[in-house]
């Protein structure tokens, strides 16, 4: 049998491992367990009732629908941006490359009020969309815009290293042998970046589903129509309906775990392909 820990000359395993697990348990696992136990203590019928009220269903539809749409938009534009940054030289490329991480570093409340101002009826962009009949702020479109912004870095940062790995001589060889541009894209570039695109999509989607700060300003928060699930949880907490909030949180938690599992499987798949193709 393999020993629990392999011997090493280095000291400090007990101290650091003990501190890590203790701190992890105290700050992360225990509180999360409280949520699970709170939900488990509810009668099954009450749990089902709480998570299937029309208002809750409406919020899932918006949260998951808008997140799915935003992550899909990000796959397309994330690829285009990553391609532009990796393959082309143009003035300001390095600054733009650095700014890609901005949605990640910028507090969500700041991006929330800034997006709302830009896309409001009298905002810089909203004033040109309003005459076309497109209302962005305070509609589901605004929610999608906010979720697209916060998911963007995940796709770009996943795809960039994958694009760097596409072998240019392979592309050159294919073109030399008479392959068209689209054929090269479909048969050489896409297979190489596909795992990265999927990982980016999942990361962006997972982040968008739970997002709160950047959405609540632009969404207008009308129950059943522009109310996201995290906001419904906050409303339940403010009504001191802890069990209702816990049940909704549990639903979101289960879905998040599913996403985390998918991400890990996707990354393992990407690594296997990586090894299989031999570079």
């Amino acid at each position: 049998m393999k020993p629990l820990r392999q011997p090493s000359v280095l000291p400090g395993f007990g101290l650091t491992f003990g501190f890590t697990t203790l701190f992890l348990s105290g700050v992360v696992l225990l509180p999360l367990a409280a949520l699970v136990l709170m939900t488990a203590s509810m009668p099954w019928s009450e749990f089902l009732h709480v998570i299937t009220t029309p208002r809750a269903i409406g919020s899932y539809r918006l949260s998951f629908g808008a997140s799915l749409l935003a992550a899909s938009i990000n796959v397309v534009f994330g690829f285009i941006i990553a391609w532009t940054l990796v393959r082309y030289e143009f003035p300001g490329r390095k600054i733009i490359d650095a700014l890609i991480d901005m949605p990640f570093a910028l507090p969500t409340a700041v991006s929330g009020i800034a997006l709302t101002t830009v896309f409001a009826a009298n905002g810089w962009i909203g004033r040109y969309l309003e005459p076309l009949g497109i209302k962005v702020a305070y509609t589901w479109i605004g929610v999608t815009v906010a979720l697209t912004l916060i998911g963007m870095p995940f796709v770009v940062r996943s795809v960039q290293p994958a694009l760097l790995e596409v072998q240019r001589d392979l592309e050159d060889a294919a073109e030399t042998l008479g392959a068209g541009r689209f054929y090269v894209f479909r048969r050489i570039i896409l297979p190489t970046v596909l795992p990265a695109l999927l990982t980016g999509f999942t990361l962006a989607f997972a982040r968008a589903v739970g997002e709160y700060g950047s959405v609540i300003f632009i969404s207008g928060n009308i129950p059943m129509r522009t109310e996201i699930t995290p906001l419904l949880i906050v409303i339940r907490l403010e009504e001191f309906d802890y069990r209702g909030a816990a049940a909704l949180g549990f639903v979101m938690l289960v879905i998040s775990f599913g996403m985390l599992l998918t991400i890990n499987l996707l990354q393992a798949w990407g690594r296997r392909r990586h090894v299989a193709t031999g570079h």
């Binding site: 992360v28 709170m38 969500t108 709160y212 906001l231 907490l237």
Partner: peptide, 21 residues
């Protein structure tokens, strides 16, 4: 994986678990 867990959790839930406690 457990250390990465808070990244996968909605910020609202991160706050709520302490309210439940």
């Amino acid at each position: 994986t457990l250390i990465d867990l808070p990244l996968a959790v909605s910020p609202v839930i991160s706050g709520m678990i302490y309210v439940l406690l």
